[in-house]
Computed example of a mutant assay.
Amino acid sequence: MKKLGACKESANYLYHQELGGIGILDASYHRQCFSRHSHEGYTFGVIERGTQKFLRSGSNNLAPAGSIILINADDIHNGQANTDNGWAYKALYPLPEHFERLSHELVGTDTYTPYFPDAVVHDEALAKQFRYVFSVLERSENKLLRESLLYALLTRLMRSHGKRRVELPVEKKATKKVSMVKHFLDDSPSTNISLSELAQMASLNPYYLVRAFNKEFGLPPHAYQLQARIRYAEKLIRQGYQLADVSNLCGFHDQSHFTKHFKRAIGVTPSQYARHFLR
């Protein structure tokens, strides 16, 4: 396990191809403070030691040892220790496509991605199953075993704690103009664009755009752009790009700037993310 400086901090990131590709993180943090960020996929974690304090979708939460944290895809969240001795946890990062595939097999032709309403759950049996799956992913080379156990774990998560997301009425959804800006930032994360240019693109007042974007997506445009760049960086690293090239392609000013923001969102440095990659 790669040390992150102080003896109390370590993080190990692995990537598995099972069910289309799932990342796992085994981490022990003392001073780590995650910035407000989001992921394309879900985050499920079992707290092994200490207590984690985190924001999820506007609400503050505490997750003590033994509890499970549930973060939906695109949920704005952060994280830090709530105790002097830090916290340790094991996390899985499945994508919405994993649940679409599972839901199709469970209910037939109807597919959906579940919404997990509770940020923290106390489910001792599920936590035990989670730890077992994690140990198999870390140690076993048996692909059939790993995939079967992952399938069972995600199915249990969805059945025990997942709900069908209730669609908002059309008038409550993000306006087309604000959504247009989000899609642009998603599709062109490295573009060095100004607020005025984004506002002109959407035919909105710049200050209104900032307020409306933040209300709809939980982050102002400049912070969302940073998250889009980090997501793009993850993709490029998985494709085998050199880190210096990733930094440039994603629009970061320099390598140190890239490393700082990547670690604050993902929990490991870009080099650790790349080094522990499984193909």
Rank of each mutant, 00 (worst) to 15 (best):
H98F: 04
I237D: 10
A265R: 02
G20I: 01
G58E: 03
K8F: 09
V107M: 12
D186Q: 12
F258L: 00
R159S: 09
R165C: 03
L19S: 03
Q239K: 13
E100P: 01
L137F: 06
Y208Q: 14
R139I: 03
S196I: 15
L102A: 04
D186H: 11
R165W: 05
Q129P: 02
T83Y: 04
I237K: 07
F54W: 04
T51V: 15
F252L: 06
A212K: 14
T175M: 08
Q52N: 11
Q242F: 08
L106P: 00
I230Q: 08
V181A: 09
N82Q: 13
V133N: 10
D26V: 05
H77V: 03
V178D: 11
M180K: 14
R101F: 12
F130P: 05
L168T: 09
L4F: 05
F213Y: 13
R275A: 15
E197R: 14
F99A: 08
P220Y: 09
Q239S: 13
S203F: 04
K260V: 03
R165Y: 07
N78I: 00
H104F: 05
D84K: 13
R238H: 06
Y132V: 08
A265K: 01
E171M: 13
D254Y: 07
A127W: 00
H183C: 11
Q272S: 08
P221L: 02
K260W: 01
H98P: 03
I24F: 05
A212L: 06
Q52C: 13
L209T: 04
E141I: 01
H161R: 11
Y15F: 15
A73M: 02
L19P: 02
G20S: 03
D110W: 12
G66A: 02
L4K: 10
F184H: 15
I266M: 06
G240T: 06
D254H: 14
I230R: 08
A228M: 15
L226H: 03
A27K: 05
L70Q: 06
P189G: 09
N214H: 13
A65H: 01
V121E: 08
A11C: 09
C250I: 06
T191F: 13
R49T: 08
H222A: 06
V121D: 06
N60M: 14
Q227H: 05
G66R: 04
Y115F: 14
S196K: 13
R238Q: 07
E124K: 15
E216V: 05
Q225I: 03
F184A: 07
E100N: 13
A265V: 00
S38W: 15
A244D: 15
Q52F: 03
Q272D: 12
V210T: 15
F213V: 08
F213E: 02
Q227L: 11
D254N: 15
L149H: 01
S59D: 09
K163S: 12
P169D: 06
R156K: 10
A223T: 03
H104D: 10
A127R: 00
H161I: 10
L243P: 10
H104T: 13
K2V: 13
N82M: 10
T155E: 05
Y273S: 05
P117V: 02
R211A: 15
S35R: 05
G20K: 02
R31K: 14
S59P: 00
K8H: 11
L70S: 12
S148K: 14
K263P: 00
G23Y: 03
A202S: 12
D186M: 09
V46T: 04
L14I: 04
R264C: 00
L106I: 10
S38M: 14
